[in-house]
């Protein structure tokens, strides 16, 4: 039985696992953006908080993913459900690029534009929402893109705690020394990553402000 036959025979299972994978990554990214963008704004606005925030996000990045899942497992509410646990761990990984790019995007807004906005009587909130965020949207999206591709890869580890996704095939394949099973997880994950990269790349270019 060659690989394509194997894939078509197991297409239902692969599709199921892919959808689980997309759910894990999608939920992670929503959460990571909801947390990371505000943190990125805080990093620019409150310089004394920039070290602790970026430092923590950096540390989270350095913890091996299996170990991070292990650390979070005994926590009361988090450890109760596998997908909850996995999404939390994945979010911690996804934060750094989003925080960093949000901060870089806002810091990169032309000071003359900010000065004009202040001088015209925009409130700090209006400057943020009408000027700074729209002008940094493509930089923020670049961070989301890096984080998404990263998360699609790391999410395969979520299967280790029973959160499902394409990692199921990879772990099973490793246990059974079955390359086709490993590929059944790895190939769709790679396609997902490429697709997300392409799509977010297009959005990023489309939203980049013209100069």
């Amino acid at each position: 039985m060659n690989l394509s036959q194997f894939f078509s025979q197991h297409s239902n299972e692969i599709l199921q696992a892919t959808l689980e994978h997309v759910w894990l990554v999608g939920a992670t990214m929503l959460l990571a953006v909801a947390v990371g963008v505000p943190l990125g704004i805080v990093v620019v606005r409150k310089p004394w908080l920039s070290r602790p925030i970026l430092g923590s996000a950096n540390v989270a990045e350095t913890i091996p993913s299996l170990a991070l899942l292990g650390f979070l497992l005994p926590l009361p509410w988090l450890g109760d459900r596998a997908d909850r646990l996995a999404i939390t761990a994945l979010t911690l990984y996804a934060l750094l690029p989003i925080i960093r790019n949000t901060a870089a995007g806002i810091a990169g807004v032309d000071p003359a534009i900010r000065e004009a906005a202040r001088g015209m009587g925009l409130t700090p909130r209006q400057i943020l929402f009408q000027v700074e965020l729209p002008l940094s949207i493509s930089t923020i999206l670049a961070g989301v893109r890096v984080a998404t591709v990263l998360t699609i890869g790391i999410a395969t580890i979520a299967a280790a705690v029973g959160a499902g996704g394409l990692g199921e095939f990879i772990f099973r394949g490793l246990a059974m020394v079955n390359n086709r099973l490993i590929l059944a997880g790895a190939v769709p994950a790679a396609i997902l990553a490429l697709g997300a990269d392409l799509l977010l790349g297009i959005m990023e270019r489309a939203l980049r402000p013209a100069r």
């Binding site: 534009i113 002008l135 402000p209």
Partner: peptide, 9 residues
């Protein structure tokens, strides 16, 4: 101001 500070978007 000199650079006009028009909002580019």
């Amino acid at each position: 101001i000199q650079e006009t500070g028009l909002f580019p978007h």
